[in-house]
Amino acid sequence: MADKTFRLDVVAPDAQLYSGDASIVVAQTTVGQIGIMANHEPMLAELAPGGCVVLTDDAGVRKALAVQGGFLSVTADTVTVLAEAAQFSDDVDVAAERAVLDSAAEGSEDFLRAKSRVRAVEAVS
């Protein structure tokens, strides 16, 4: 199965959140959603505000991360997510984030952060 996986690193300024093999990564970029599989063409994309990144590891387990800004870099055999901030969906209090969505001004930093966290939870629900 090695030819159907690639190296994935997800890093933020304060932590390395994931480092291992993956079979697919789906990310929301400023130009739309993109899926990356093994042998994808090299590219660089800006991650969308309020977006999330979903990965499927080499064991077939799906994991989602709320990602606030940053970049997605694809090389011949590695994908790197360089996030300004990121958090696994398992660590999100969905009720609290939905309350923020209801009270925060649309497009504000708080709104986009909450939107990102809710999207990550919904992506693996």
Rank of each mutant, 00 (worst) to 15 (best):
T78M: 02
A95H: 03
A83V: 07
A96P: 02
T29C: 08
V54G: 01
L44Q: 12
A99P: 00
V54F: 03
V53G: 03
L82I: 05
G50K: 11
V100D: 12
S89A: 15
V31N: 09
A64W: 00
F88M: 09
V53C: 04
A64H: 09
L55S: 00
D77N: 03
G32E: 02
F88E: 01
D90T: 06
S89C: 01
M37L: 15
V53Q: 00
A83K: 04
L82D: 09
V81M: 10
A76G: 08
A48V: 06
T80E: 03
L72M: 14
G69V: 05
I34P: 00
V31P: 00
F88R: 15
A48H: 00
D90W: 04
P42D: 13
T56P: 01
S89L: 03
V94W: 13
M43E: 15
Q68P: 07
R98M: 10
D58I: 11
T29L: 13
L82A: 06
G35R: 02
A95L: 07
A45N: 01
D93P: 05
P49G: 15
A85S: 12
G50Q: 13
G69R: 08
L82F: 06
E46L: 12
Q33A: 08
V100E: 04
A99N: 05
D91E: 08
D77V: 05
R62H: 07
P49M: 15
A95W: 04
V61L: 13
T29V: 06
R62M: 05
A86S: 13
M37Q: 09
D58M: 05
R62C: 07
E84I: 15
A38F: 10
V94N: 08
D58H: 07
V94A: 04
I36L: 13
M43S: 10
G51R: 05
V54C: 02
F88A: 10
T56I: 04
T75A: 14
V94E: 14
E46S: 11
G60L: 15
G69W: 09
A83S: 04
C52A: 03
T78V: 11
T80I: 15
V67H: 02
D91V: 00
T56V: 08
E41C: 09
P42Q: 14
A64Y: 03
V74M: 15
H40D: 14
R98T: 03
E84Q: 14
V81N: 04
G50V: 11
G50L: 06
A66Q: 10
T78C: 10
S89T: 00
M43C: 08
A83Y: 08
A86D: 11
L65F: 05
I34R: 11
T80H: 07
L65T: 11
T56L: 09
L72F: 01
D57V: 12
T80F: 08
P49V: 15
S73V: 07
G51H: 13
E84D: 15
T78G: 01
D90F: 05
D57C: 13
C52Y: 12
A38H: 11
M43H: 05
M43A: 14
A95T: 11
F71G: 07
S73K: 04
G70P: 14
T75Y: 10
